[in-house]
Every structure is written in structure tokens, then in C-alpha cells.
Design a protein around this nucleic acid. Structure first.
Lengths: 347, 347
DNA sequence: ACGAAATATGAAAGCGCTTACACCATTCGA
DNA sequence: TCGAATGGTGTAAGCGCTTTCATATTTCGT
């Protein structure tokens, strides 16, 4: 923190400082840095030397203000820690960074009000595109996004009425498919647990209820308004087993809950899937490794991010054309692994 | 994306637009927004109405440029998806957001070169403080950070030579303690697995080696240059068991590896801890829930973030005073749970 | 009822950069 | 040999905001 330059309060080096040192004007430095082919080689070198000597770092703020191009992509996710968003964010980074864009991530904590504020904050930074999770933005948030005059991608779900473009999958159909799988194995007493903070989880519950109704079965659903952790999965399964001893299969709202439930079941001395079949949701990294390996529904999170990025880049860098379809459904895959099997005694 | 205003290309609303609508000057709007106590109530209301009607969002870029205050805190983490950084980032958000600061997170992918670029990018945004993970920054990165004339906090480790301030724990001592625990239980054949991408993990390996040497035991260490996932834990334990059948205890470099190893062991029909004791590292959320519950070393990640934020706020908002000590060691706690026990036959 | 202090607003300058556009050398074709 | 084309550099303006500083208005003590 030392390195005082004598002139009292330290001042960050500016373009003019570099220009003075290189013996040219500020514009020239700007050009040498951003459009090197426009200046002579000799000059480019001199400027580069001055930049290095001064450890000059361009002021992105000033640059963005002057050029009206921030090179930023705003991304809002409900949670930074939920593994679900890892692949998605990775895809976004993978696609945008090489193109010279910066990905700014803000989290909404699964709360609409916080999301609205995050969107306002992000918009204040003038991103060149916004990628938001889900479709449940507040009216005001939708208005701000629509008014920003930039591409807006909603992800993870599908809807007929996107703000601009939506890329995802039908969470309800996916929940339906997971439940169907258990029904087809012969289960009749199928419970469901979820943390309904997440609106996508609520969609899946709907799918579960529809599948149960279709099969003429009685749904049994418990939930807990908390972030979905392993501990809650363990807690909820205890409640369910106590209240509904006939249960032979569980559809957990996500893999965390599923694994937590599996641990609790094993701790009771019961076996998965013999005593209880469990299917999770999302196919997080541990699902394939766990013992028994967790049946689950794989969601194309990386592809969603990849596709979102491709569309954004096409709009702001390419032809400017939006895709023909404003709603893009990337589907899901049911993964039958070891944690689900036919019930021991057909009941 | 509609809402054209007739004037050709859509233009974002500016302070002047709001001022015009409210029938006042731009300065006044700026004041009504930021220092409401300086303007009359009547005016404040008129301005607020204009803001709402236009859905005006202040241009943070221009604001920051003019005021030389960005209200941003730059944070660099090696990975966004590794659960380890979840609590840490949460602490940072919890502390900074209420104070009106924005937390910008960039990830370095555990690569020094990428970290250097992330730091340069971040510095270009003129954050008011930087919080970086670890102490292994490149020379150039250190130089940039030291030259930025803002508080710089390094976290998660300790060192006698911080750039500015460092808050963390001795990863080596923590690794030593984990190993000691196994030795004290009576184990003699203790293996270690790690993903050495992470320099903190390498410190822990050193602690392991020191503990083994102190006890006159032969170390057995395997590693894999990959992100630490459950699958690698499973893979590595198979290698170890095959190459070193006498092993009775495992110190896994982190909880992900530990749980992956535990699954693989169970899949072989072996029991934890009877056939193999396993201790992990970090105390991630699943460690307490797993069956058997995972012994591990709890690191004060939330507290590190909390402390870092408190120090930063004190420097930039408070007295401007830096803490007396530039190195702050927050320690660790050994958690004895179910996955470690004395070896079945003392060998 | 008067001047001083307090309160409320506006005008002008400038944050560090980029984007026209203007200018000056060269170089080239005819 | 001249004009036009080309390449390389500088000048001026302005991005949208905040910060002095000046000015107009009100309030108060005596």
C-alpha cells in the first residue's frame, strides 16, 4: 500500500499519464490499446512500454460511459451455492469470456423482491444483455427488463409469454415423468417432498399431483420453507415415514433432499431401494456416485446456458436477429439408476 | 421489447429526462435521490413521481465516474460452484449489501493466470476494496493490488507477508490435526488423497506429511489434477485400496472426496468406519447428515468473510484505521463424528 | 424591521474515456 | 508533376452523473 508519488493522495494512473509518458496524445493511446492495427508498430510498442511501466489499468467505467458499450452480461440466479446453478454459470462463462464479455452474477435468494432489486442494480450497470432465472419476475421487474432495450433471456422454465426469449424445460412435465417412473415400477404409495421456496420445485409438485391423479392414487406431499439442504431431506423423510408408514417410494424435489432422505433411511437400518425407492431431481454430480446411485431427472443446465449465450451473442454481435421461436424447450432425461426399483411386495 | 418512443433508436432515460418531467434541474433530482434531507418534501415527491413514471434507473457508471465512489467490493474466488465458498460469499453479501455496497464476484478457476486477469478486470471497475482467496497471487497481481490504493484482504490462509491484510487459518496445521486424530485413534496405515489444483489442499497435504513423519509412519498419498468431485473420491479410493491393502484410515483433502470415497467403500461391501476410517475437510453441509456422519475439520468460512467485511468497512467508512495485526488467524475445529474410529485390529 | 444565518435550488465544470472529424504526411496512378 | 487516396495522429465534443460554488429565498434574533 506504499508507493506514494509525492503528490499527496495517490491517484490512479490515467490514459493521459500513459500518453504523457509515451509522448503522444491520449487518443492515440486509446487506439493503440483497442485498435492496434490503426497505429504504427513503433508507437504501439512505446505505448505498451508506458502502460507496463505505470501499471496502468484502464478505467472501465469511463470507457463504458463514453462508448455506451459495457461488455457486460447481467445474470441473476436464485442462489450461488445451489449446485444446480454451477453448470449453468459455467456454460455462461465459457461462452461469454472468450468473446470479451464479462459475466456479472447477482443472486436473488429465491425472493421476488430481492430479485427485483438485483435486476434494478444490474440494469444500473448497463449490461448488454440480461439472463434471469425463471419466469416469475414481478410486474415492475418485467417492466424494467422490457424497457432496457437489450436482449432478455429467461431460463430453466418455459412459458408462452416470455419477456423476450425463454429457454428451459417444462418443470411440470419433468415432475410428472419422475412420478410416472415410480408408478410404472408398481408403487402405489408415493410421497413427495419439496422446498417450495423455489418456484420450479412447485411446478414439479404440480406434475407429481397430476401423475398421481391420472393414476387414481392419493398424493402425499410435505414441504419446508428452507433452502434445500441434506439436513432437511433427512428431517422431512422422518416426518413422512412417521405419518405415512405405507409409503414405498419417494419423489424428492431435488437431489440434495433425496440424498439427505437416503442417509436418514439408511441410518434407520432400512435399505434403498428395497424398503424405499427414491428418485431425485437435477442429476447433480453426486447422484451417479452415491451408494446406491440415485435415480433422478437430468436437466440440461449446461445446454441452457450455452444456448442462452449463443442467442445473446447472435443478437448483439451477429446479425441482430432474434431466433424464430421465442420459447425454446430443451427437455429433460429420466435417469434410472439404483435407488428406484419395484416395491418389495406389491401393495 | 416494444415501447418505442418515436424518436428512432430507444434511449435510456437519464437524469435530465426526470428533471424535465419534474420541472426542476438535474442537480436537484440527483440530490432528491441521494440526499433527500437536502430538498423540500414537495420536491422530493415530485421527483419520485417522475422517476416512477419514467421507470428511471440511474446510470451507475456515470455516477461512479463523477463521484469516484463505485460502491463496489471486488471478490475473487477460485470456484463459484465449490460449496466451500458458499458460506464465505454469503457472509460477504450479508455484511456489504445492507451497507449499500455491491459485491462483484469473479472466479479464477484455481489458475494463477486467470486469477491475475480477473484481478485486472476487477480493478478496472474501480472497486473500493478487494478480497481475494489465498495468498498465491502472481507478482504482477500483487503489484496491481498494492498499487490500487484500496484495502486488500487475502483470505483462507495465513502468512507473515500479506499484501495488506490476511484473514484465515493455517491449512497446514489443520491438515496436521486431521492426521493426528487418525494416529491417536491407533491407525498406522493412513492414506491421503487430494486434488492439488487447490493450493490450500497442498498445504493440508504438508500437514499430513509432517504428522506422519512425526509419528514415524509412512505416508501414502495420491492425487489427481481435477476439480474435487465425488466421482474422483470414488476413483482415488479404488486406486489406493488396490495399491495399499493395509490402509485402515483415509484423510481426504475435502468433504467431496471423502463422501465419494465413502460411497465407493460401501459399494464394495465394506463398512465405514469398521473397515476404513475416513476424515474429510471443511465440514460442508452434508458432512453432518451423511451415514455414517463424516468426521471432518470445520473451517470458519462464514467468520472469515464476516471479519473481512468488518475490516473493510472500518477502513473505508469508519475511522480509516487498519487493524493492529495484519495477519488474523481464525483457527479451525476438529469434528469427531461417526466415520472415524479405532482400527478393528490394532496393527 | 433589519441583517445574518439557514435553507433550497441552479449553473458550470469535470470524472476518464471514446468517437467523430480534421489535419498532415506520404505514397501512388496517370 | 499533380491530385487523390492512404495512413497516422491530434482536436474537440460529449457520455450521464456529482461536486463545488453562487444565487435566490426564507427564517430568525434582537
Amino acid at each position: 500500500m506504499a508507493e506514494g508519488d509525492g503528490s499527496g493522495r495517490r491517484r490512479r494512473k490515467t490514459l493521459s499519464d500513459v500518453a504523457a509518458r509515451a509522448g503522444v496524445s491520449a487518443v492515440t493511446v486509446s487506439r493503440a490499446l483497442h485498435r492496434p492495427e490503426m497505429v504504427s508498430e513503433d508507437l504501439r510498442e512505446r505505448v505498451q512500454r508506458a502502460v507496463d511501466e505505470l501499471a496502468y489499468i484502464p478505467n472501465q467505467l469511463a470507457s463504458a460511459l463514453a462508448s455506451a458499450r459495457t461488455g457486460r452480461i447481467g445474470v441473476i440466479v436464485p442462489s450461488l451455492t445451489n449446485g444446480v446453478f454451477g453448470d449453468y454459470l459455467r456454460a455462461l462463462h465459457d461462452a461469454f469470456l472468450p468473446e470479451g464479455f464479462q459475466v456479472l452474477v447477482l443472486n436473488s435468494g429465491y425472493v421476488a423482491g430481492k430479485e427485483e432489486r438485483a435486476i434494478a442494480t444490474m440494469l444500473g450497470q448497463h449490461p448488454e444483455a440480461m439472463i434471469v432465472t425463471g419466469i416469475d419476475q414481478t410486474r415492475q421487474a418485467r417492466r424494467m427488463l422490457a424497457g432496457a432495450a437489450i436482449p432478455v433471456i429467461q431460463t430453466m422454465e418455459v412459458t408462452d409469454d416470455p419477456i423476450d426469449i425463454v429457454i428451459g424445460l417444462s418443470q411440470e412435465d419433468a415432475g410428472h415423468a419422475a412420478t410416472r417412473h415410480l408408478i410404472q415400477l408398481g408403487h402405489r404409495h408415493i410421497g413427495q417432498m419439496a422446498v417450495p421456496l423455489d418456484s420450479r420445485a412447485r411446478q414439479r409438485v404440480k406434475g407429481y399431483q397430476r401423475a398421481m391423479a391420472d393414476a387414481g392414487l392419493e398424493p402425499f406431499h410435505v414441504s419446508m420453507d428452507a433452502p434445500s439442504t441434506f439436513a432437511y431431506g433427512a428431517e422431512l423423510i422422518e416426518t413422512m415415514l412417521a405419518r405415512w408408514p405405507k409409503m414405498t417410494a419417494l419423489f424428492a424435489g431435488n437431489d440434495n433432499l433425496a440424498l439427505g432422505a437416503m442417509f436418514a433411511v439408511q441410518r434407520r437400518g432400512m435399505t434403498v431401494p428395497d424398503d424405499l425407492s427414491i428418485i431425485g431431481f437435477n442429476d447433480l454430480d453426486f447422484a451417479a456416485t452415491s451408494f446406491p446411485a440415485l435415480s433422478t431427472v437430468a436437466t440440461p443446465r449446461y445446454q441452457i446456458g450455452e444456448r442462452a449465450a449463443a442467442i445473446v451473442l447472435e443478437i448483439i454481435r451477429g446479425s441482430g436477429a432474434r431466433p424464430r421461436e421465442r420459447t425454446i424447450d430443451l427437455g429433460f432425461r429420466l435417469l434410472r439408476r439404483e435407488s428406484t426399483a419395484a416395491p418389495r411386495t406389491i401393495g
